[in-house]
Write a protein that binds this DNA or RNA. Sequence first.
DNA 1: ATCTAAGCGAGACGGTACGTCACGTCTTAGA
DNA 2: TCTAAGACGTGACGTACCGTCTCGCTTAGAT
Lengths: 193, 193, 193, 193
Amino acid sequence: MAEAGRGRPRSEQSRRAILAATRDLIAESGYEQLTVQAIAARAGSGRQTVYRWWASKELIVAELVVNGELTLPPVPIPDTGHLQHDLTAWLDEIMLSLNDPQAGALMLALVTAASDNEADARLLYEMSTGPYHAALVDRLAQGVSAGQVGPHGDTTAIADALIGTVLFRALTPGARPAPTSVVIRTLLGRSES
Amino acid sequence: MAEAGRGRPRSEQSRRAILAATRDLIAESGYEQLTVQAIAARAGSGRQTVYRWWASKELIVAELVVNGELTLPPVPIPDTGHLQHDLTAWLDEIMLSLNDPQAGALMLALVTAASDNEADARLLYEMSTGPYHAALVDRLAQGVSAGQVGPHGDTTAIADALIGTVLFRALTPGARPAPTSVVIRTLLGRSES
Amino acid sequence: MAEAGRGRPRSEQSRRAILAATRDLIAESGYEQLTVQAIAARAGSGRQTVYRWWASKELIVAELVVNGELTLPPVPIPDTGHLQHDLTAWLDEIMLSLNDPQAGALMLALVTAASDNEADARLLYEMSTGPYHAALVDRLAQGVSAGQVGPHGDTTAIADALIGTVLFRALTPGARPAPTSVVIRTLLGRSES
Amino acid sequence: MAEAGRGRPRSEQSRRAILAATRDLIAESGYEQLTVQAIAARAGSGRQTVYRWWASKELIVAELVVNGELTLPPVPIPDTGHLQHDLTAWLDEIMLSLNDPQAGALMLALVTAASDNEADARLLYEMSTGPYHAALVDRLAQGVSAGQVGPHGDTTAIADALIGTVLFRALTPGARPAPTSVVIRTLLGRSES
DNA sequence: ATCTAAGCGAGACGGTACGTCACGTCTTAGA
DNA sequence: TCTAAGACGTGACGTACCGTCTCGCTTAGAT
C-alpha cells in the first residue's frame, strides 16, 4: 500500500529537528508565543516541511507528549518501604521542579494544546499524567498491602487527589499551601510515622 | 490632578454588554475562537470601545473572573450537619456541571487567559477557585469541631485535594474515576456514615 | 427667524482660533497631516465646536480661502505703465514666494481640499486664483490700450496662461523653466523693451 | 549576496492585477475613496500582497504613472505642417478629454499622490506631463523653423504656458475660458491663418 | 548514466485577526 | 445653549501568522 521509495525519502533528521525546536521554544517562550515560522527557523527547515509531517501545531505538541519528550519532569516515586516518607519526598520534588519556569510553560502548553478538542485532551492528559497516575496507584496498592494506608483510603482517589493537588498548585502560583507532609498525612489518613 | 467627571462618561451599558458577550461567546465556542471583532459585534459596540477599556482579550476574561461572572458554576456547599454527605453531594453536583460543555470551555479559558503572566494567573485562579477553597475550608473546620474529620486530616490539604481532584477530572475527560463517595471518604479519613 | 440670544452665544473667538489653527497647521505640516483633533487642540477648543461651525475639514479650508487667509501670497501687480516690466517683476516675485515651503503646502491644500467635489473645487479655485486672474485681465486690458500687447494676444488667454504657468511650475519642482522675462515676452508677443 | 531565484517567485499576474485595480478604482471613484482593501478585493488578491510590494498607496500610483498607465489620455500632437491648426486641434481634444470625469480623477490623484514628498512630486509630474511637454517643444521647434511662431515666442515658455493652461482649466471647472483658437493664436503671437 | 518522482529550504500567495488612528456623533458638567 | 472634554460606533490602516502553493535544488530508486 505504501508507495515504494520513489523520490527523495523524508528526512528523519528534519522531523527530529522540528520536534526538538518545538520543545525548546515552548520551554523558552511558552506555548502562546509558539509559531510554525519560529519552529521551522529554529529547526533549519522550511515551513512546508513542518506541515508535511503534522497538520497543526497542536499535533506536534501531541507527538512530543506521546513520545514523553514534553511532560512534567519524570520524577520516580521512591520505594524505601515507607509509603508516607516516599510520597512526601516525591511530592516535594515535584513541587520543586514546578518552580522551574520551563515546567510551568510545559504545563500550560499541555492544557492549551488540548483546548477545543476533547479527543486531544484525553490523549494528552493520559499520556502526560497517566504514567504518574499509574505509578502512584501501584505504589499505593503496595502500601495498602503493607497496612500503610488508612482504612478508608482508596488508591485511585488518593492518586487523583495527589495529581490534582499538584495541578492546582502549579496553576495558583501565589497560594500558601499546606506542607507536603501534611498533605500526604491527610491523604493517607495516617499520623506521621 | 485627575479631572473629575469631564467629558462623556463611559457607557456602563457597553461595558456590561461586552463582558456579557465575552462570557457567552466563550461558553458557545470556546476561548480559542474568541475574537475582539466578534465580542464587539455581539455586544453591539465598536471594536475600539473594547480596546478603550481593556488592553487585551485576556483582561476582559480576567475581569469576568474577578467579577465572578465567569467561573465554575457557583455550587454552594450544603450544610446538613453531616460533613461526609454534604461534601459528597457537593462533589457530585460539581462533577455533573462539568459535563456541561460550557463549563469545560470556561475552565480552559481560565487556564489559557492566565498563560504567560504569573500575576494574571494568580489573580485568575485565586478569584475563580478562591471562593470554593475558602468555603471548603470553612465547612471542613466546622466538621473538625464536630469530630467528622479523621484525626490526621488538615483542612487546607483536604480543600486543595478536592479542588485539585475536580481540576484533574475536568482536564482528563476520558478517565474512569473513583466514585465521589469514595473520594470524600478517602479525603476525610472516615468510613461512610 | 434667527433665534434671539437664548443660551450662551457662540464664541467668535473660538471660530477665529480654529481658523488660525488650521492655517498654521497646514503651513507647518501640510494638508495631509491635518486632523480635526489637532486643529481643536491647537485652538484650545473642543472637537465638537469645530463641527458646530463647519461640516468638514474641507470647508474650514474653503473658508480660509474665501477669506483670503489661505492663498498664494497676495502679490500685487505693479503698474509703472510698462506692462512687460510689470508682469516680469510680478512673475518673479510669485515664483520666488513659491520657494517658501509653506506656499507649496497651501497650494496642495487647495488642490486636495477640492478633490471629489466639483462645487468646492469651483469655489476654492475661483476664490484663490480669481482675484489674480481678474487683476491680470485688468492690467492686460490697460496694456492693450497702451499698445503694449501684441496684435494677436487675448487678455483672458494670457491671464490663463500666466496662472497656468505658475501652477505648472509649482507642481514640477525639478524642472528648469524658461526665464520669466522670456515667458512674458512670449505671452505678450513683444520684443523686450 | 542577494539569493537568486529562491522561493516562489512573485506573481506578475497579481502585480498587474493590483496596478489595474488601482487604476480602475481611481478612475471610478477618485483617489480619495481609494483603499488598499478595495484594491486587493478588486485584484482578487490579499491585502498583504499589496503591502509586500508597495509601502503605500501613493507608491502604487507612482508606479502607474512611471509606467505611463495612469496619465492624461495620450493625445498625440497632429502634424499637418500647419502649427496653429495642429495645436488648436490638440488643445481641443485635450480639453474634451478633461470633461471625462475619469481624467479629472486621475489629475487629482497625481496631485494628491505627490503631496508631502517633493521627490515624488518631481517624479510624478515629470513622468505624467513630461512627455507632453517634450512633444510640444519638438513640434514648436519645427514650427519655428517653418516660421510659424511669432518672433518673440520661446518654445519652452509656450509649452509651459500650454500645459499650465490645461492644468488651470482642469482645476477650475466653472470658468468660462477663451476659445482654444484664441489661446493658440495668443501663445504663438500669430494671426489665425 | 540517465530519467523520474518526491522531499527539501525558501518564500509569495489569499486570508483573518490584531491593535492603532481618525472620523463624525453623542453625552456629560460647567459657564 | 454653547463650551471643553471625551466616549461612542465605524472603518481604514499596517503587521503578524495562518495554511497553501510554487520555485530551483537535491536525492534516490527505476529505467
